[in-house]
Design a protein around this nucleic acid. Structure first.
Lengths: 80, 80
DNA sequence: TCATTATTACTGCTATAACAGCAAAAATAG
DNA sequence: CTATTTTTGCTGTTATAGCAGTAATAATGA
């Protein structure tokens, strides 16, 4: 799964025509972090991952049988 | 977003009737990691997060306009 | 081809997540 | 209500992600 994420990131980066350095700059992280992410040599931190996914326009979705209920409880207390 | 993930984890843990310690044991991580995750006091690592999501039966999905193409390229080389 | 530049890969040092152990708070029992 | 247990919250120490700098490889042009 970690490998998969790295693979997805590399794919999207290439398609965006960005270099590791450019992506890193845009995400506000170091270039080595991008390298490690793509190669799964180290287990990235979520905040770092989210910065990269944000630049590459990738959304992260949590799915489970309970998510429906969770969302309801959340929205029930925060109406516009 | 990191706060959201922590919130989701806590919700699912409670619904599963697990304590932080039990969840930690099942996930094979330390209890403090669960605490930190739920409180967003530290930015968890993906491998640690995935272990927890796995125990709580939460799937993580990456969504983007390019994912379709990515999946195709992946599956084209790995047929059953 | 051989330079030159751009990109990726790698390494040692610094910042920080994960852990074990303890303290505080909550829940349960008597 | 008090004692006991269970659960959560919080520390200092250890393991590891992130970073800056450098080397190696790939791309571009003369």
């Amino acid at each position: 799964m970690v490998e998969e994420i790295g693979s997805v990131i590399r794919f999207h980066r290439k398609k965006s025509g960005l270099t590791q350095l450019e992506l890193a700059k845009l995400a506000g992280i170091g270039k080595a972090a991008v390298y490690d992410m793509e190669h799964s040599t180290k287990s990235t931190r979520i905040d770092t991952l989210l910065k990269v996914l944000n630049v590459l326009n990738i959304k992260i979705i949590l799915e489970s049988p309970l998510m429906q209920i969770y969302e309801e409880q959340k929205t029930s207390t925060t109406p516009p």
